[in-house]
Amino acid sequence: MFATLHDKLNAVFKKIKGQAKITEDNIKDAVKQVRLALLEADVNYKVVKKFISAVQEKALGEEVLKSLTPDQVFIKIVHDELVNVLGGDDQSTKIKLNPIPPTKIMLVGLQGSGKTTTAGKLAKYFQKNGKDVLLVADDIYRPAAIDQLEILGKQLKVDVFSKRDEQDAVKIAKEAVQHAKSAAKDVVIIDTAGRLHIDETLMEELKNIKEAINPDEILFVADAMTGQDAVNVAKTFNEMLDITGVILTKLDGDARGGAALSIREVTGKPLKFVGTGEKLDAFEPFYPDRMASRILGM
């Protein structure tokens, strides 16, 4: 029941040992196993289809079957392609600092994905790099959202900008950026309220914040446990806001994280960081090869 993809492919290749080259026919079962592994990992159905046909194309004609370990050769083809799609050695994964400070970063995403916690983590990350950070509590809806960010700010000794009586998130963002300028902050991190991609009013609010402050980065924060719907959500956030990158949270669990592939595929935007815990130092750069192994269950 817990056979790994390796075991399954090994069994498949045993049956076709001795054949010289990969053909569409003799590779069918191996491809099927990869497909199942990706679907089990929550990679979107359509994204799997596309990925599988790319792999198949790469594998055709390869002489893997003569190898002593054809399953491993095949897995390597799959793994490499997955790394490639997840970003390969794309260098755009770092956060670009604006030569004219402050660098403005906006965090957006569905409810509960981890935006506020990630705002704290990013603040800590920049703080460690010697930057002076301003956190902005721009979630005016969720009960105690401002308190949550203020507590994180206090833990980090990072300033938090908030306006408890203001009912306009656009105004708060604008004033926060003004404040950051006059206080000579290096980085401004704006925490926004969680919202559904189909909530037109609230998506419009994000667009207005974007227009008002012209952020350097709009980071889409997504939960690694997200299922098939990741494509719909990421696609809409990207279409509405032209996001600049993705942060995948809650990777400290045992979710395979296929959403990473789905999101990358539909947005074309780089995954920049991952969250690996509730504490503010549980934050790492995104490594495509690690993610690929995880998705394949290796």
Binding site: E40, A41, D42, L110, G112, D223, M225, T226, G227, Q228, D229, V233, G253, D254, A255, R256, G258, A259
Partner: peptide
């Protein structure tokens, strides 16, 4: 359980 979550909800 969050309706947005995938197969991890089983675990």
């Amino acid at each position: 359980l969050d309706a947005t979550s995938g197969q991890n909800a089983i675990n």
